[in-house]
Amino acid sequence: MLSKRLIVCLDVRNKKVTKGVKFKGNIDIGEPVELARQYYLDGVDELVFYDITASAEKRPIDIEMVAEVAKTIFIPFSVGGGISNVDDMRRALLAGAEKVSVNSLAVKNPEIIRQGAQAFGNQCIVLGMDAKKVPVSDTIKSGYEIVIQGGRTPTGKDALEWALQAQELGAGEICLNSIDADGTKEGYELELTRMVSEAVQIPVIASGGGGTCDHIVDVLQQGKADAALIASMVHYGDYTCSGIKEYVSKKGVKMRLK
């Protein structure tokens, strides 16, 4: 039986893993390669690296870091941030990443999904999407709108329609982040996650709001997610990946245990 996955997200700024704290800016957590190794040995199923300043600084993703990570861990990892075309994707994949993630870029240019999928296979292309709850309207029938630029800019795109369109274009996986839940540690957006996961045939990673092990159980069971993304739960040492997976497994969710 296929296991549900626990994925740790590492936001990288100036070669350091960082975590945004509401109203307080960002604090450094550690070195990306060291943290990757630590989570790898602790049994994490997959990692995601976001080069969060690459786009703003108009530079490609830090390929040196990708290559160092690939030498250090032997599980899949994806990278995002600073991917602006197929050549950037190729460099990241050749450096050893398993998948590349596109978000705002795909909203502005959906064809990038098709181009990436044709060049490297669907399984290499992850669509990251940030969704925000809005009143149901003629244009936003699902009640969730796609937002970009860290949630500041609404796009007028319906989240559910966008997920289906991205699947059609060749996305191999969706990383679905709830802007409303993100950073709250009060639990994932179960309604949104379930709606998207039941509508598409590709795996869905739930993101935003994870604060306790029970939140993870809920999003994998009720939310029907294939994987749960976490960050601060493990970055501050409150939890370990192995501890979380053991707990979630005891609650009846199939997880890979050591």
Binding site: S3, N122, Q123, I202, P203
Partner: peptide
């Protein structure tokens, strides 16, 4: 049944 294909992830 809405089983996801590809079969992606960790399995026994």
């Amino acid at each position: 049944r809405n089983v996801k294909v590809p079969h992606m992830g960790w399995n026994e």
